[in-house]
């Protein structure tokens, strides 16, 4: 093996990954054309590399639902995702049937607005989202923890996503 072959051998891995610059790539290719020994080395490298790649690409068997059962309670407890938030997603063009929320809301409003004893104890700030729709993205409705003020979050599609 010549010193050129040694140099090329060191570059074969990056050549295989297409990570060489144009000049180096041409140099390797020119050498491979003229050197059967290095050509053989490259073929062996590619074969073992393909085998390793095939092994690494095999999907391991994991019970993902079971894993999620462990993940979900943990992330509920952590601060990033607030347990006390109620959030539900509305697909574009659909309206939220608010019957359940309205029932709870009506009861809350009754106590907040109509009963003086309760009225004095809490701020009258309850508002409710009866319906919501978006023609350009998804909409999420959630509530703040303290005053249960509704937050309607519009998730617009990016211009990239709008392209067919």
């Amino acid at each position: 093996m010549t010193s050129i072959c040694e140099d090329i051998a060191y570059k074969l891995s990056a050549y295989l990954d297409n990570e060489l610059g144009e000049a180096e790539k041409n140099r390797v290719e020119a050498h491979l054309e003229n050197c059967p020994s290095c050509r053989g080395s490259f073929r062996e490298l590619k074969k073992s590399s393909d085998l390793v790649s095939a092994r690494l690409s095999v999907q391991p068997s994991v019970d993902f639902d079971k894993a999620w059962q462990h993940i979900e309670p943990e992330i509920r407890r952590r601060p990033a995702i607030r347990r006390y938030l109620r959030a539900f997603i509305v697909k574009p063009g659909f309206w939220i049937p608010a019957s359940a929320a309205a029932t709870v809301g009506a009861a809350a409003l009754f106590f907040a607005l109509c009963l003086p004893v309760y009225k004095s104890q809490r701020p009258v700030s309850l508002s409710h989202v009866e319906s919501v729709s978006s023609k350009s993205g998804s909409v999420m409705v959630l509530h703040t923890a303290k005053t249960s003020q509704p937050i309607i979050w519009i998730m617009e599609k990016s211009p990239k996503e709008k392209r067919p």
Partner: peptide
């Protein structure tokens, strides 16, 4: 991610999937 941060468990599951 934005909606996960706002508390959506459904979207957390979607990201997981």
């Amino acid at each position: 991610i934005k909606s996960c941060l706002s508390g959506s468990q459904a979207h957390a599951r979607r990201l997981y999937d």
